[in-house]
Design a protein around this nucleic acid. Structure first.
Lengths: 244, 244
DNA sequence: CGTCAGATTGATATTCATCAAGATCGGTGG
DNA sequence: CCACCGATCTTGATGAATATCAATCTGACG
């Protein structure tokens, strides 16, 4: 499988949030990144490094990871196709966390110089890139709320609702069904719980007939009930076009 | 007590992260905001609203809050003098959370139009404002790591280390001593635990002679040990000037 | 067939929540 | 001045959520 068209994914992600003019579209299409194929458990970006390019996922899933001294780790964001994993590296010079892959896939690295050029040429595109990083931050806030105040069970429901909508933006979640190739251990590192407990939460969702999850493919059987269990409100994903 | 000079605080926050040229300084000094005095438990920004200005705290402490249906709430960021609480409102149109005050203080509201004008006139200042929002996001990531993988005790240690350094940037934490007027219930909403448990964690820090906390004033008695207990690494706060 | 990673299950231990009751303290009306 | 009040802090007892440890089970694959 070759790498999916990176620029189309990026445009889909942008256009879901606001209008993109033909000139701006041309600017984005002018980006030239280097494609990288990855397998599971590769380090796309290393903590402490000073990247000179930003990494867009085009297939598969990656995660930002903070490692603790006792060997445990916390995943502080998940990235699906169309996501800029480290656009913030354009501003923050030194990485305070790593980015690792959770599944096989593809990524494209765009040199910061090209992105900076875009910020010089188009204030509106600059705002849209900034907006992408702000949506990222909004997702992090919702994760904080889940970690702090939701049960592990509700947290898992919330996560699945979020992923389904985010994948739908890039056309990867038709009929509430999407590829979900995480190991349960990775899921535990997202939810901040043990692998054993993560497994029990998954079992519960299966028993409640809320999801079907077999072999890397996950289907949400009843989105409404899942969203209710999680008090899920998609407002924070900014899935509506705003006037410029 | 009158409102502290807002622009100086903002400049201190910016200059701690990078150089500001005289012209840029003039641009910032040209900002005209409206001052607001607040007491505890006021809502500076209401969830669901569409702000037309961004709010800079100049004295006291404010927090972004997500409320859950069962009446509980999670604080997903704390804001100290010099912090733009909702700069992201410039990009994200509708607020996905509220901002409430945790202590009395002052805030200044800058109309988005003025901020947008800055982004038109100075690409470098734009990047610095963007950087501020990115530091905010980095702090949120570290909170996620604490919520997910640290004990409540270590989480509290980490929080106090962070606050001490952030307050030091604006000169409000000389000799590891700063005003900390949160109620223990608010602290619990930061840490994602119950008030009772928060109290026990505080007691423990007192018993270990790591802090003294009396009457709104908190002193860190042994920063090094506190940082060790938390595995605190200040890298994420970006407290070093980077070349433009 | 043996091996290995991952999923699952059961038993037990820790952490933290909840409930209830005092203790403390500043403010307030009489 | 003093009794009272509400908010907050503190402490103890008990229960629920989650971690940890240890097996077993499953399927992919050399």
């Amino acid at each position: 499988m070759p790498s999916p068209p990176a620029v189309d994914l990026l445009l889909a992600t942008l256009e879901c949030r606001g209008a993109v003019s033909p000139e701006e579209r041309a600017l984005v299409r002018g980006l030239e990144g280097s494609v990288r194929r990855f397998s599971r458990r590769e380090e796309l970006i290393v903590v402490g490094s000073r990247p000179v390019s930003s990494c867009l996922v085009t297939a598969g899933m990656a995660a930002r990871v903070v490692g603790l001294a006792d060997g445990s780790r916390q995943i502080c964001s998940l990235h699906v196709p169309g996501d800029f994993v480290d656009l913030h590296g354009l501003l923050l010079k030194q990485m305070d966390h790593s980015v690792v892959t959770l599944t096989p896939g593809y990524a494209v690295y765009y040199p910061h110089e090209q992105l900076r050029e875009i910020t010089r040429r188009s204030p509106h595109l600059t705002r849209m890139l900034w907006l992408l990083t702000m949506i990222d931050a909004a997702i992090q806030r919702s994760w904080i709320a889940s970690l702090g105040r939701r049960s592990a069970q509700a947290h898992l429901c919330h996560l699945l609702c979020e992923l389904c909508l985010r994948l739908d933006v890039v056309g990867l979640a038709a009929r509430h069904r999407f590829e979900f190739a995480l190991k349960q251990g990775d899921l535990a590192d997202v939810l901040g719980i043990s692998t054993v407990h993560a497994n029990r939460c998954v079992q519960q969702l299966r028993a409640d007939k809320l999801i079907r999850w077999l072999d890397r493919s996950l289907e949400i059987l009843d989105f409404r009930r899942l969203a209710e269990a999680a008090e899920f409100d998609p407002l924070y994903l900014n899935l509506h076009r705003e006037p410029r």
